Simulated assay, not measured.
Amino acid sequence: MSGDSSPYRNLVLKEVGDGVLLLTLNRPQAANALDRQMATELASVFARLRAEPEAWRCVVLTGAGERAFCAGADLKERETLAGPDAEAQYLAIAGAIRAVLESPVPVIAAVNGAAYAGGLEIVLSCDFAYAADTARLALTEVAIGIMPGGGGTQLLSRIAGEPRAKEIILTGRPFSATEAQAWGIVNRVCPGGQVVAEAIETARRIASNPRLSVSQARHAIHAGLQMDLGSGLQLERDAYQRLLTSAGRKEGLAAFKEKRPPRFEG
């Protein structure tokens, strides 16, 4: 995969160095809302990441402009759809969010502005998120007679707990980046204009570590949370043992012995 954004109409892909991809939702005139085209393109990017596992080590996902990260599904497009077409739009958006969740490499959300409905579900599907101090977040679906359908009910309850998820989803009330941090939805609140830079800095640090170590640790954390503690601990031991003979471990030990920075490859 290259940094060329030409295959995409509603996304911008930019190589920012050190194995980090900056992926920008690029419909600022529509608050970066997800129409079928953008959803299809977003799923395509993560399909390419799976097909080319050596291309990138970490992704930073953000929105164009300062107003919005993503306003959710494009309701103007939805108003023009009926029957199978409306179902196709929903499936495309849900599939794109699932593609983010199942990314083969870590994904950091840089929430530069409003993240509503499906936009917040994208954030929840990332490994973790940073938010601008001006960002607002919400799952507003109940206010228009539906409910979160891109993982919101499941992901938010796992991240913030069942009572908080019920309050957020059943009221549809927007909340601040500071509240989101207190509830565990975002890891860091950044001064305006710095959220992407801070996310990229963290992504570069992740990307500097051995790919296999990052992959195994990430898998153990995520998969282990779906298990009882005993099974999770066994999963961790199995993952650890896979790393004992890895090139990354050998280089890390050699660098420590020789008192030099490690040079991880592959």
Rank of each mutant, 00 (worst) to 15 (best):
A47T: 15
K76S: 08
V195D: 01
L61Q: 01
I185A: 02
S176P: 04
R205F: 04
I144D: 12
G95M: 05
H219K: 12
C58Y: 02
Y240S: 10
Y130T: 07
E87H: 01
V107T: 10
R136A: 10
N26T: 00
T171Y: 02
S246N: 02
T134S: 12
A165P: 04
D74Q: 02
V195G: 01
R249C: 10
E198G: 02
N187A: 15
Q29V: 01
L22C: 03
L212E: 14
R50L: 00
L139Y: 11
L243Y: 07
G232Q: 08
T80S: 14
I185V: 15
Y240C: 10
V123H: 01
V142T: 15
P104S: 02
D238N: 12
D228T: 13
V60M: 09
G184F: 06
F256Q: 12
V111Q: 07
L124G: 06
G150M: 13
R48E: 13
L235G: 06
G152D: 09
Y116T: 11
V59C: 01
G113D: 06
K166T: 12
D85W: 01
A68E: 09
K76C: 00
Y240R: 15
E66V: 01
L233E: 15
R164L: 15
G149A: 13
G248D: 08
A109F: 01
P210Q: 04
T62I: 05
A177N: 09
R260T: 14
I200R: 00
A71T: 00
R173V: 11
T134P: 00
T24C: 04
